[in-house]
Amino acid sequence: MKKVPKSDQVPTKPYQPLILRIIHNIQGIMIIMAIITAFWTYNTYDGRFGKISLLPPWEEIEGIHGTFGLFTLLIFPIFVVYVIHRGNKKIIQSNTLNQLKLVNKPIWWYSLHRLTNTLIIFALTFAVFTGKMMDENWLPEGELNHFWYYLHLISLILMVFMIGSHLLMNVKIGNYPLILSMLDAQIREKDSYNLWWQNIIFFQQNWLNIVKTQWDELSPHFKLLEITILFIIISAWLISIIK
């Protein structure tokens, strides 16, 4: 039998856990909609750094942007906890910085992919925090020179760049099947909806031991990453309430 050249082989589509697909896709939709409405808000009330004249002014757009931003913020800690505890092989490892010295070798690309995945989490942390520091009345009242407004604009530019980098690295590492795997409707037995209620009851009865066990199993740098991001998210809520 003639062997198919490696370059002609069709990459296999990896299987992504159902929970990851749900959280990742909802988070992704909220982020994309937040970015689109953020630009429309900027285009309506600001436009000093360039604007699209064909995009009509819409005074209600800032409230819509705030809604998508709020949903992004609410989902974000769930996403962070899941990724660090269940998907930490896809983010920065303790030896990633050393592996990044092996330029153009396969492990270099995988390490770069992990670094990109980690940086997009920090970029989103920056975006939700600066967004929470803003006042919804600033732009409608023409107050365009606030420190937090400028930082939020920068954070949105970073998010666009990081999303693009994230997609490019996925294409490099797993080609189009890796991206399509996040949209796959396939469900394996271990992810069956029939098991969800059973798992919820089990977690409810044993949550303290589960949390303690999972925390003990984390590497120190994962613990630091989780504490840092969750602390920033909680701080954003507390500061916004106090102010």
Rank of each mutant, 00 (worst) to 15 (best):
L183K: 04
M162K: 12
K3C: 06
H152T: 01
P14H: 03
N95I: 05
W148T: 03
R188M: 11
I239E: 12
Y149R: 13
T41I: 03
M133N: 07
L73H: 08
V10S: 08
P14K: 07
H65T: 02
L144E: 09
L102E: 11
W207K: 07
K212E: 14
Q198C: 14
W58Y: 10
L55E: 08
F76A: 05
P56W: 12
T72W: 02
I121W: 03
L218S: 11
I78L: 15
I234H: 00
Y45M: 08
V81W: 08
N43W: 07
A123Q: 02
Q186Y: 00
W148V: 00
K90Y: 15
Y150R: 13
L102R: 05
L195I: 03
W108L: 02
Y150C: 01
N170V: 04
W109Y: 14
E59F: 09
V81S: 10
P177L: 00
V171S: 12
E59D: 14
I52C: 08
N199Q: 15
N117H: 15
F122G: 03
Y82L: 13
S155N: 03
Y42H: 06
F68S: 08
N117W: 04
Q93S: 07
G131V: 01
E60C: 02
S94Q: 12
I227Q: 06
K105Y: 10
M169I: 00
M182G: 14
W196E: 09
F202N: 11
I120D: 10
H146W: 04
P17A: 13
V211D: 10
E143I: 13
E60Q: 10
F39I: 03
Q27I: 00
K13R: 14
T96N: 11
D191N: 00
L55P: 09
V160C: 13
V160I: 14
K2C: 00
I61H: 10
K6I: 13
K101L: 06
L218H: 14
L168W: 13
Y110T: 07
E217N: 14
Q214W: 12
I64V: 14
V128M: 04
K190Y: 07
Y176M: 12
I241F: 11
G131M: 04
V80F: 11
L238N: 13
Q16D: 06
I35P: 08
I107D: 11
D191T: 01
Q198T: 15
M1W: 12
F222Q: 15
L167P: 07
I31T: 13
F122L: 13
G63E: 06
W109N: 03
K90W: 12
L55S: 11
T37G: 09
I23Q: 09
I179V: 12
